[in-house]
Design a protein around this nucleic acid. Structure first.
Lengths: 233, 233
DNA sequence: CCAAAAGTGTTACTGATACACCCATGA
DNA sequence: TCATGGGTGTATCAGTAACACTTTTGG
């Protein structure tokens, strides 16, 4: 399906009556006990700022394939990623100098070790969410970020999404720590366990982790098929 | 921004590297005490079937404007509509003979009287959801429908979305009836009231509706600003 | 007075929240 | 033996669900 560039239509041409679709990604990870995301440095009209990694959606490929391709080309990450579509935004022309772009927003969750070993840091920076909120953000990517963060926080309580940033076997306290970092607040130990167990997303391994004073039980996530909640799509 | 058709690029051309974006709408209404939606009759390759009203998204207009335009052109409806974006689907080429289309799905809620007075029935049919599920549906519009129905059902319990199909002033029993029709099951009277009142979406008018034996209190929805729940986007 | 629909009470159960305490281990 | 997490108990409160009863009107 590859066509010589010279024969391709100019997608920014006024002779084209359909909008260009971009795919932008909020990539979350937990790094040094903080919730972080990846950002791309940008200079538009001599204004220095940041945006989310993103690119134009290509024809002939599914949205999932487009996601993988954008992620790879803009960050270097090729595997070990949880992805989920968020929302489709219209980026109005005042903000986007290129013209009328529709932004298909995704968010992703990656383990820090996995991310660090794959990311090309000449392409992107890693920033904490606190830092991000003080940056100058291009397009409407700050809005996309807020939406992604809300979705991530909400999903903790009714899915096993956190498994994408935990190891195979883990102690409940490690899991709780992840929740606390993402939510930005501390949680009650026992109440957390009751909630998680009632969700039915974890199961005991009957092993112990003896790396701390008192050994802790190790858990793992149950198979997808055995989960009772159904997450459409 | 109008360009003579002769000068426009062919959006289906292989020389175009970006996908075409379509906007498809699940239009719900309650008609004759049943939950119904609007469908478009289609014949593709001599196969008779139905699809959701939809069209190609045009450049230079916001998604909201595109929605209004599609709705008007494909159904005749121009006003009195609640709209909400659902999800963006990739319609794989096997199902969509035109090629690679990305479908931006919306759903809408319209009062039956408003719908009936506006709809052009040479363009669309009105079917109950039961009937719809037995029809031959083109593209992946049956999947979009199921997703829309789930969203609609969920939203009843934490928003005032139902106000789009109720009159200004109404009795709680009328409201309950709407919920029952949409959810497809009956609800307990008192429990329903407790739930709705705790949501804080309705307020008393101190008027009575005397059209039945025992007069009923009339309620109305509270102003948007006074609602405590925040619905992002 | 009876049918129809409005309107209210009670109880049991479940889950969320807050707080308090004991336990097993290494240093 | 004590500091450090791991692990558990319990009371309260709010929300959910099921069921039963009373009230007000028109005919």
């Amino acid at each position: 399906m590859l066509i010589p560039q010279s024969q391709q239509f100019d997608i920014w041409s006024d002779k084209l009556t359909i909008p260009v679709l971009a795919l932008d990604i909020v990539i979350f990870t937990i790094y040094k006990w903080e919730l972080c995301i990846l950002v791309t440095k940008r200079n538009e009209d001599n204004i220095h700022g940041y945006s989310l990694p993103g690119s134009i959606v290509a024809k002939w490929y599914s949205l999932s394939e487009n996601f993988d391709e954008v992620l790879k080309r803009k960050t270097g990450i090729t595997h070990g990623v949880y992805k989920e579509q968020l929302y489709t935004f219209w980026e109005n022309s005042a903000r986007d100098p290129r013209g009328h772009v529709i932004a298909l927003a995704y968010y992703a969750l990656v383990k820090a070790e996995s991310l660090l070993s794959q990311v090309d840091f000449t392409l992107v920076d890693i920033v904490t969410v606190e830092q991000f909120m003080k940056l100058h953000i291009f397009y409407e990517h700050d809005e996309i970020f807020r939406y992604a963060l809300k979705r991530l926080k909400d999903k903790l309580w009714y899915t096993d999404i956190v498994k994408n940033i935990l190891s195979e076997e883990f102690r409940i306290s490690e899991m709780q720590k992840m929740y606390e970092i993402i939510l930005g607040r501390s949680l009650d130990k026992l109440n957390f366990q009751k909630k998680i167990f009632s969700l039915g997303i974890v199961t005991e391994t009957w092993k112990k982790d003896t790396s701390t004073n008192r050994p802790a039980k190790l858990y793992r996530f149950v198979e997808k098929k055995q989960l009772k909640f159904i997450d459409m799509l």
